[in-house]
């Protein structure tokens, strides 16, 4: 229970000379859905990728369930950005979801009927039960996103790291993802999502992390999404956001009284 799914301490990441993450500190609450929010180029995806070791960190410490990632990989599932792969690749939806099981299947051993069945169940869980044999380029963008989600679900992990799962998806996909988040939380699993849409943060997530090259604030949505914090995160772009902020903060206590 007290096990912290993801703990990041003083993480620094640089692309060449340019520092994109600066002493990022982050503690993900167990059994809750956390959104990482911030402006474009704030380093949201970079934070996830560096935590997973996909890009090298200049310094800092990352612990999954109190251990380095290499020892708990089975408990961590990753959903990359949809645009990161070529959807014209010659595989069908079931093949992609089965890839989430490769780790469990192990080197060299073949994919068996029971694995395919698990993949089909995961596809059904995200509302794509009839699409198992569909070539992935024949799926809509939202359906592709759900295939990625199913590939993570089939891993039965304890922590899900998702990079922009809500980016440009249709209403049905959004509903499917939200439902999945609820189900995962109900099972005591933890979720971290890079999220771009400030307006929907409070509705979909329990916790929020405001990020702009460094972590500006983190905690329950109601506390974190204050005008003050958003101003610090989004800076000059705030004027565009003031209305959204107003809507966001009103139901959660402090409210923008000074506006």
């Amino acid at each position: 229970m007290s096990e912290i799914p993801l703990h990041i301490r003083d993480l620094n990441v640089a692309y060449g000379k340019k520092l994109v993450l600066w002493d990022a500190n982050l503690t993900v609450a167990s059994g809750r859905a956390t959104a990482i929010v911030g402006p474009n180029g704030a380093g949201k995806s970079t934070l996830l990728k560096a935590a997973l070791g996909l890009i090298p960190a200049a310094s800092g410490e990352v612990r999954f369930f109190g251990q380095p990632l290499g020892r708990v990989r089975r408990r961590v599932a990753y959903v990359p950005q949809r645009e990161s792969v070529d959807w014209d690749f010659p595989v069908n939806a079931r093949d992609v979801v089965t890839m989430g099981l490769y780790r469990r299947i192990g080197w060299i051993r073949p994919v068996r009927a029971k694995h395919r069945r698990l993949a089909e169940e995961a596809l059904a869980d995200v509302g794509l039960g009839d699409f198992a044999n569909r070539q992935i380029s024949q799926l809509s963008g939202g359906q592709q996103q759900r295939v990625f989600l199913a590939r993570a679900l089939v891993q039965r992990a304890d922590l899900y790291l998702m990079d922009e799962p809500f980016a440009s998806v249709d209403a049905a996909t959004e509903a499917a993802i939200l439902e999945t988040l609820d189900k995962l939380r109900a099972e005591g699993r933890s979720i971290v999502c890079v999220h771009h849409d400030l307006e929907t943060v409070a509705g979909a997530f329990d916790e929020a992390v405001l990020l702009n090259m460094r972590v500006v604030a983190q905690g329950p949505c109601a506390d974190v999404l204050s005008p003050e914090n958003l101003r610090k995160t989004y800076g000059a772009r705030l004027s565009l956001l003031s209305d959204a902020m107003h809507d966001l903060t009103r139901p959660h206590g402090p409210g923008p009284t000074g506006r």
């Binding site: 990728k49 997973l52 070791g53 996909l54 990632l69 290499g70 990989r73 961590v76 990753y78 990359p80 990161s84 792969v85 070529d86 690749f89 595989v91 093949d95 992609v96 890839m99 490769y102 780790r103 590939r151």
Partner: peptide, 15 residues
């Protein structure tokens, strides 16, 4: 197949 399709996912899975 996994590495060709999705390098990042493969790396995150420890391949």
């Amino acid at each position: 197949k996994l590495v060709c399709f999705d390098e990042a996912f493969a790396a995150a899975g420890g391949w």
